[in-house]
Amino acid sequence: MSTTLTYQEPELIALLKQQDETGFRYLYDNYSAALNGIILQIIPDQEQASDVLQEVFVNIWRRIDSYDSSKGRLFTWMLNIARNAAIDMTRSKAFQNSQKNRELDNDVHTKPDGSLSIQVDNIGLSKMIGQLKEEHRVLIDLAYLKGYTHEEIAGMLGIPLGTVKTRIRAALLQLRKTLT
Rank of each mutant, 00 (worst) to 15 (best):
R83W: 02
H136D: 12
E134L: 10
I118P: 00
A85M: 11
I168H: 04
D65K: 13
R176D: 10
N80D: 08
G37Q: 04
I153C: 01
L116N: 07
I42W: 00
A143P: 00
D29P: 01
V56C: 09
L27M: 09
I42K: 02
L179A: 14
R167T: 08
G162W: 02
M1I: 09
R167N: 12
M78N: 06
T149I: 08
S69D: 11
E47A: 06
A85P: 06
N106W: 00
L35Q: 04
S92V: 08
I153R: 01
Q19Y: 12
S115P: 01
S115D: 08
L145T: 03
L125A: 11
L142K: 14
N30S: 15
L145V: 04
G162M: 10
I38W: 02
H136S: 11
G130F: 03
N59A: 15
T3W: 08
N59S: 15
F75V: 12
M78G: 06
Q174W: 05
I43M: 03
S32L: 04
L116F: 01
E135C: 06
T4K: 15
A82I: 01
T178V: 12
G155R: 09
Y67E: 06
D45Y: 09
L125C: 10
L79M: 13
K127Q: 11
Y67G: 06
D51R: 05
I43P: 05
E103K: 13
K177M: 12
M1W: 05
F95L: 02
L12C: 06
F57S: 06
G147K: 09
R176C: 06
N106C: 07
D113G: 10
V138G: 00
G162Q: 13
I159K: 05
I43T: 01
D65A: 13
D107A: 14
L142V: 10
K177F: 08
M1H: 08
L15R: 08
A34S: 12
E9P: 07
Q54R: 03
V56F: 07
L79P: 02
T110G: 03
A33Y: 08
F57D: 04
K71D: 03
L172I: 13
I13G: 07
K71R: 15
S115Y: 05
R62D: 10
L15C: 05
Q131P: 00
A85Q: 14
L16R: 04
T110L: 15
I42N: 01
L145H: 06
N59V: 12
K177E: 15
S70K: 15
V120I: 15
R176W: 05
T90N: 11
Q119L: 11
T22E: 11
S117E: 13
F57P: 03
A154C: 07
M1V: 08
D105H: 05
L179C: 12
Q131D: 12
L27E: 04
T3A: 11
L5S: 13
E151P: 00
Y148F: 15
N84T: 07
L145P: 01
I38R: 09
I159S: 01
T3M: 14
Q41Y: 04
Y31G: 02
I140G: 00
L12W: 01
S50K: 09
E11F: 10
L12F: 01
I60Y: 04
L74N: 09
H136V: 02
D105R: 12
Q131M: 13
T180E: 14
Q18D: 14
T166D: 08
G37I: 00
V58T: 09
Q96Y: 04
